[in-house]
């Protein structure tokens, strides 16, 4: 009951912020929330389940394109299109993860890197279906139950997505499955000896988080009402990895902090260094790994002035 109230309070506050902002800040706020949702699910995949994958942003793109194509070109009703989009993400995730997690090592990293690269090519070459390099534009969200979701009301949808992702992943993290994931991350042999099916745990974690990324992508599709290949480029997959590492991998609050810092930093930095944030992020990420592997949350936990 208490946690339900907490969730309601968080939703109310985050939504209220949405109603106070002007158009420019609304745009920043919405994208920040989407980055947080992505960082949360990527944190589960990378931080909790210990898998290096570069496909998270790709599934965000698959979700976004899928819902637009299914609603506008196939004419499906929204709930059906959303379900089909999730199913598509899960099937694609299984096709990649089942072969790639059969072996130890970093085959998933490679396979997902190749998948991410291929997805952009597919979007560019997709002709009518994906709109080529220009992407798909000038569509709009169908009314849901007679309500037009636009403006601050759509921000509420994004807030609901973020809180849903947070609560779902926090629950799973504390369940037997979350513990199994951590066990597999820390020591696959020991996990297997305890009766955990290592490959299945990895595949499920990958498919689950990929589906969550797809869901976030579906929400994103109606933020700008445009989807195009450059949005889903590989740089963003690296950025997501950096967010989780810098914030503190394995920690949900760390992912929120990492996503917020890295998303907002360019707004502060661009007067100083123009568009070269990625260089700064790379250096910061390297320093974090070398100096404080638990990221910003680890820095906080190890604060020297803490009273013991």
């Amino acid at each position: 009951m208490k946690s339900l109230l907490q969730a309601a309070l968080v939703i109310a506050i985050l939504s209220a912020i949405g109603f106070l902002l002007g158009p420019y800040h609304t745009d920043i706020y919405r994208k920040l929330l989407l980055w947080i949702a992505l960082a949360l699910s990527y944190n589960f995949l990378f931080g909790v389940a210990g898998q290096v994958a570069f496909s998270h942003f790709t599934f965000y793109g698959v979700g976004a394109y899928a819902i637009v194509i299914l609603v506008t070109q196939a004419g499906l009703p929204l709930p059906l299109a959303a379900t089909a989009g999730i199913v598509l993400c899960v099937l694609l995730a299984l096709a990649v993860a089942i072969p790639a997690t059969r072996l130890d090592g970093f085959y998933l990293a490679l396979a997902t890197l190749a998948l991410a690269q291929l997805f952009i090519v597919f979007l560019n070459e997709g002709g009518e279906l994906t709109g080529g390099s220009g992407g798909l534009t000038s569509y709009r969200l169908p009314d849901v139950g007679g309500i037009t979701l636009s403006g601050p009301r759509y921000t509420v949808v994004i807030v609901l997505l973020v809180t849903f992702t947070w609560i779902l992943l926090a629950r799973i993290d504390q369940s037997w499955f979350g513990r199994a994931c951590r066990a597999v991350r820390d020591n696959p042999q020991a996990a297997a000896a305890m009766g955990i099916d290592v490959a299945r745990t990895r595949v499920i974690a990958y498919a689950l988080t990929s589906a969550l990324a797809g869901l976030a992508g579906m929400v994103y599709a109606f933020v700008d009402n445009t989807v195009s290949p450059p949005i889903f480029g590989l740089e963003n997959a690296f950025l997501l990895l950096f967010m989780v590492i810098i914030g503190g991998s394995g920690s949900q609050i760390g992912s929120v902090i990492g996503a917020t810092v890295l998303y907002l930093l360019p707004f502060v930095l661009s007067p100083l260094i123009g568009h070269h944030h990625a260089l700064v992020f790379g250096v910061v990420m390297l320093l974090v790994i070398l100096a404080q592997p638990r990221g910003l949350t680890g820095l906080w936990a190890a604060r020297p002035w803490r009273s013991r």
Partner: peptide, 13 residues
């Protein structure tokens, strides 16, 4: 491996 991914981005940028 992660640190080398950081180096990858640093080289490229």
């Amino acid at each position: 491996i992660l640190a080398l991914l950081g180096m990858l981005v640093i080289f490229r940028e």
